[in-house]
Simulated scan of single mutants.
Amino acid sequence: MVKSAPVPRGPRRSPEEIRRLMVNAALELLVAQGLGSGTERITLKGVFDYLQESQGIRLHYASVLGRIWVDQSEFQRDVAVAIASIDGSTAESEATVAGFLNILRKSDRTTLDGRWQTINRFCLYLGESNLNELVESPTWPLWVSIWAVSMSHPDETEPDLVRDALTKSYGSLTTNFEFAFDWAIAWLGFRVKAPLTTRQLSTAVSALAEGCALRDRLRSADIRDIKLPTGTKGRRESWTLFGIGLEALCRHFLEEIPSWEPGPIDF
């Protein structure tokens, strides 16, 4: 009788490598399948099977239980924390940033009207591009779902790791917006009106973007293709509700810096 050749064993992995493999695979599954009402649908066996099928990696319960997680629910909590930690501040594509800088390079900064017109162009452009990036993101719907589950089921008996991760993610997003706004408005000779702050502006903008993106996924007709006579000689242009709200926030938050003079643009 001929014995079959033994199945070669894969490389020995550290607990941290296995944790990373399992959590990343769980996120890939959730992107493909959706979150539903929580991470309960992601099971250890389901992730084992997915890793075997997609990457040829064989793991089993002995690989993780007692070494990394106490039980399946602890694994699911780690997956939820990973989703909550997704950094939305890196969502802007290179094309969006390039378009933003191109508007600034072409702007007329010699007059107050020209500078406000640049704000108008920013809002028209970013209202469309940022909304698209949120709506088309494969992970943002998961982040929103985890946010909703966390808010509806707060854990007050022990440290809430998911809520902490959400707070850090929000903080990163707000700081990113804050830096971008400070830089852009300074180049245009504006500042935030006291006692308001740039952080309050960035918080309002991110909240508006998220709300519009949620509505857009349900009924985009309420959010997009709003025709306004903002083009050259009153030409009608297509705006998003996010872009309109963004300009309204800028008009309320910003004021001219007295005696400001434009410097050279070196980017």
Rank of each mutant, 00 (worst) to 15 (best):
E94K: 09
I257Y: 06
P8G: 10
R236V: 07
A194H: 12
C123F: 04
R224W: 01
I86G: 01
R163H: 10
A180W: 12
W187V: 01
L101Y: 11
Q76W: 07
I103G: 02
E237L: 14
L196W: 04
P6R: 13
L254N: 08
T174G: 03
P154C: 01
R235G: 03
C250H: 06
S137F: 03
G10L: 11
G34K: 03
L124G: 02
R20E: 14
Y125V: 01
G38P: 08
L228M: 15
T90K: 13
F190D: 11
L112F: 00
T43H: 09
F179D: 13
T174N: 12
V47C: 06
L134D: 04
A209T: 08
F122Y: 10
A194Q: 13
R224G: 02
G211P: 09
A165P: 07
A82H: 01
I265A: 09
D164G: 03
L29E: 02
M1H: 09
R236S: 06
P138N: 09
D87W: 01
L142R: 05
S152C: 12
N24T: 09
K193S: 15
T90C: 03
L112M: 05
V162M: 03
L44C: 08
D78H: 05
I223G: 02
E28Y: 00
V23Y: 07
S150H: 06
L134H: 10
P11D: 07
L173H: 07
P154Y: 05
T230K: 07
F181C: 09
I226P: 01
T110I: 00
R199S: 14
E74S: 09
R191G: 14
Q200A: 10
R58N: 04
I265F: 12
G56M: 04
A186R: 14
R199L: 12
P159T: 11
L21F: 12
E210R: 13
V70I: 06
V192E: 11
S73Y: 09
K168Y: 01
F179P: 00
V149P: 00
E53K: 15
E261I: 13
N24R: 13
R121N: 10
P15G: 14
S85Q: 11
T232L: 14
L30H: 02
M151L: 11
I185D: 03
A32G: 10
A207P: 00
E247I: 12
A194K: 15
I68R: 09
M1R: 15
K227L: 15
R215D: 04
